[in-house]
């Protein structure tokens, strides 16, 4: 059977890797690093959100 070239292109386009996968954001909380903000408690999430960078 002949392959339908259009169909093959379509399959290739729809096969995508990483759908639904988020970015990881490592942050220092007090002195420890945490691999994801999900495990921060509410207060620390707020603190992390408010942080401003210091210029050099």
């Amino acid at each position: 059977m002949l392959m339908d070239p259009q169909r093959e292109t379509k399959t290739r386009q729809t096969r995508r890797i990483g759908e639904g996968v988020g970015f990881e954001r490592t942050r220092r909380i007090t002195g420890y690093l945490v691999g994801t903000l999900d495990r921060f408690n509410n207060a620390k999430r707020a603190e992390e959100r408010d942080r401003v960078r210091h210029g050099v």
Binding site: Q13, R16, I17, G18, V21, G22, F23, E24
Partner: peptide
């Protein structure tokens, strides 16, 4: 870090290495 392409650094909206947004797939 983008676990899909392994990029480590700052990611604002779009991964600078593979160009995907959070939750998007890459071919």
């Amino acid at each position: 870090r983008d676990p899909v392409c392994g990029y480590v650094g700052v990611i604002n909206g779009v991964c600078p290495r593979c160009g995907r947004k959070e939750g998007e797939g890459v071919s």
